[in-house]
Design a protein around this nucleic acid. Structure first.
Lengths: 258, 258
DNA sequence: GCGCCACGTCGAACACTGTACGGAGACCGA
DNA sequence: TCGGTCTCCGTACAGTGTTCGACGTGGCGC
């Protein structure tokens, strides 16, 4: 489990009693198998990102959490960017795959796409550091979990009767909207988290700046002062769902026209 | 213009001819006004980002390009994050505002929204570093240029006859889709740029990995092997436009139903 | 004219970062 | 028993963002 002193409790490490060798501090049976693994590293990086955010993830801190040296990680991971790519795909692994069976029914495929998009959005907003990461990591669209999800969505669209290129269009529109919206929301949420305040407090504190900034912009002024406050949290959920519904309407209309 | 030697051409700097004082190298009229300005710094950061990418932007390098010390920047900008926020809004300043007049005509408002979204997407893909930046910078939605644009889009929707909250929904759907799509594209483009190859070369080199990754995913395999190659560049443009059209269809349908 | 103060600039320093390199130890097959 | 290979990690390097204090200058009150 640990790397520096395998299977020995911390209080019995050789550093604690230098020079003396006893049955308790003598390193025994060292490393029959690698102490670190890629999965372990990715999982711990994930946990660190979730608890302390993106700026807290350094190779040294991650190594420390694994009871390992910073440079040990490089035998399992090429560099930090690759690690981040692995973590992102790991997160996508949390997402449930949409059900394909029965997708001939418009109600069913719409619900399937809707659920997938909502799950994706929930995942991104639950792990707001993903927004920073996705910008730095160019290639995440070849990760196994992302591919599984894409394939399943294409299968849903195909079963629903979409032409191949239509299915592709549908998927990129729905996912594009989902990712864009979720990223904007996540940026807000991570600013919120960094401030350490509740959303109400944060907005109250932000209010003077908002009023100043919306000077000369009556519609935005109205939007920020009257519209936002009364639908603070699930307002975002329903807004997202409304948008996605409109998009699916557009997709369906286009198909029935053809 | 420069900080170390104001208004003296580079070839006449005192470092070039140490000891000798002549009318050309003698520092004259030192600093009647601050040598650096926020606008200057933002503009130079913008240029540096465009030419060398996000990882090349450091306070020291930026200072050097302005013939100034790194720490001098901090009198004009609180920290790097604030600088990035300023740069992002500076980029949004490039965007043309949509024309509001005549937006009662469905053809007109659709074209206006379309043009704004296409301009936004073009800007993000032309400056791919924006993707990395938007993740780190929480608060960019109070920048003057972003506000100008949002207000104008709301005005278009209002003129088109949308209810206030409908107008807001429309804007967030269209912009969410645009930002999401553009970010995905920009991530690809910046990976492409980093590789230093043409898109064809890059894809050819990537092909084995793609084929490996799409094993067991027949639809993705077909998508990546037959669909992409023949629409390499403006394929993305037309794909984006198709998606946006479908979205606007959905928006319009929802409105006429109500 | 003189003194003073505020302001913009910057060198040095601090605490960190990612990662290349080489050594050290332990396992496995011969 | 002897390499060879694999994993781990201490050290080191080049860089990062940012703080602090010093320094020179220009403008202002007197």
């Amino acid at each position: 489990m640990t790397a520096k002193s395998e299977d020995i409790a911390p209080e019995h490490r050789s550093e604690a009693q230098p020079g003396i060798t006893s049955p308790w501090n003598r390193p025994q049976k060292r490393r029959t198998q690698p102490a670190l693994s890629r999965e372990q590293i990715v999982a711990e990086a994930f946990a660190l990102l979730d608890s302390d955010g993106i700026e807290a993830l350094s190779m040294r801190k991650l190594g420390a959490r694994l009871n390992a040296g910073a440079t040990s990680l490089y035998t399992h991971v090429a560099n930090k960017e690759e690690l981040l790519a692995l973590v992102v795909d790991h997160v996508f692994g949390e997402l449930p795959l949409p059900r394909v069976t029965g997708a001939e029914d418009p109600e069913v495929w719409r619900a399937a796409v809707m659920e997938s998009c909502e799950a994706m959005r929930a995942t991104i907003t639950r792990h707001p550091w993903m927004v920073s990461v996705m910008g730095d990591v160019g290639m995440i669209y070849l990760g196994p979990n992302w591919m599984r999800l894409s394939e399943a969505l294409l299968a849903v669209a195909e079963t629903a009767g979409f032409e191949f290129s239509e299915a592709n269009d549908m998927m990129s529109v729905a996912m594009g909207y989902t990712i864009g919206t979720a990223c904007v929301e996540a940026a807000w949420l991570s600013a919120l988290t960094r401030s350490g305040q509740s959303e109400q407090e944060f907005m109250a504190q932000m209010m003077p700046a908002v009023i100043e900034a919306t000077k000369g912009h009556p519609r935005l002024h109205r939007l920020y002062t009257t519209h936002v406050p009364d639908e603070i949290d699930e307002g975002r959920d329903s807004s997202f769902r409304r948008g996605l519904t409109m998009i699916l309407d557009g997709i369906e209309a286009r198909r029935s026209k053809a």
